[in-house]
């Protein structure tokens, strides 16, 4: 039966694109890099340079690393340094390269029901939201943004697992879904700036807090370990990484703008990033 099914699948090959394309790699990445339009801008440039097609599977950082762990992607491009270092330490990836950064912003209703004011202090803002039990939407999906949010609650001295009330809603979905939910329920939400800028359903939402050093958002890229996963396209995957951190790739990242605003800041040369 399986054999027959396979034959039928082979027969269907003519209506569907070829399965194992030469010169293509799979990159597991985050929704922010795709939804902000960065990949739509970068990948054609990389293809022009190398001839390699990059297929992006855009999921949360946690899931992207899991796809890498199973050997189902060639490259992982995410934003949660602590998780990335764990991934490398486990032998899931070869080496982590810093690529670029942007920042997180706290989004909330324009009318500022929590009374955060013009504060730049994210930790103080979170304390205010909790004290006044203002609605807050959490990604709750082990994404880079979710991990960053949990870290910020910790810095605010709040044990969110323990202290959360009905005002704190964990939706377990992507950045766009979280912003949609916040927009519909007049809630606060932490977002990466890229997704926020390109998001089209802002409604009554605006940036409540930005510019705090603790809102820094670093992106890193790693080749999935070919020693562990023989299917990994080592040469092409590494070529993509090398291009991202090259002068040309870094310039391309800096050139990507929405409404004249730069979304990502290349910093491959920064040894501490």
């Amino acid at each position: 039966m399986i054999r027959r099914l396979l034959l039928a699948l082979a027969f269907l090959g003519f209506v569907l694109p070829a399965a194992a394309q030469q010169g293509s790699i799979v990159v597991a990445s985050t929704t922010s890099t795709q939804d902000s339009g960065l990949f739509g801008y970068l990948l054609p440039l990389f293809k022009g340079h190398s001839g390699i097609d990059v297929k992006v599977v855009a999921v949360g950082t946690g899931q992207a690393l899991d796809i890498g762990r199973r050997g189902d992607a060639d490259v992982v491009f995410v934003h949660a340094k602590s998780e990335e270092e764990k991934f490398i330490a486990e032998g899931g990836g070869v080496k982590r390269f810093a690529v670029m950064y942007n920042d997180f912003v706290l989004i909330g209703p324009r009318s500022d029901p929590a009374g955060i004011g013009k504060s730049r202090d994210i930790v103080e803002a979170l304390r205010t939201i909790k004290a006044r039990a203002q609605p807050f939407i959490s990604r709750g999906d082990r994404s880079g943004t979710h991990i960053a949010e949990l870290k910020l609650w910790k810095q605010a001295g709040i044990d969110i697992e323990h202290d959360k009330g009905p005002w704190y809603k964990s939706i377990g979905q992507g950045m766009g879904a979280a912003l949609n939910t916040a927009s519909a329920s007049e809630a606060y939400v932490l977002s990466d700036r890229g997704t926020w800028l390109s998001f089209k359903n802002k409604g009554d939402l605006a940036i409540a807090v930005q510019g705090d050093k603790r809102l820094f958002n670093q992106y890193g890229v790693m080749l999935v370990n070919p020693a562990k996963h023989p299917y990994v396209k080592k040469a092409q995957g590494q070529q993509f990484i090398d291009w991202l951190i090259s002068r040309e790739g870094q310039k391309a990242i800096a050139n990507y703008k929405i409404n004249g605003q730069q979304l990502f800041f290349p910093n491959a040369g920064d040894p501490s990033a």
Binding site: L9, A19, R70
Partner: peptide
């Protein structure tokens, strides 16, 4: 279909063929 799964050698994950299998 995952490379870590029983049929990983087919290399069909993230392809239209995988979608056909699931919908079948």
């Amino acid at each position: 279909l995952s490379h870590s799964g029983p049929l990983g050698a087919w290399g069909l994950l993230f392809t239209p063929q995988a979608m056909v299998i699931a919908q079948t």
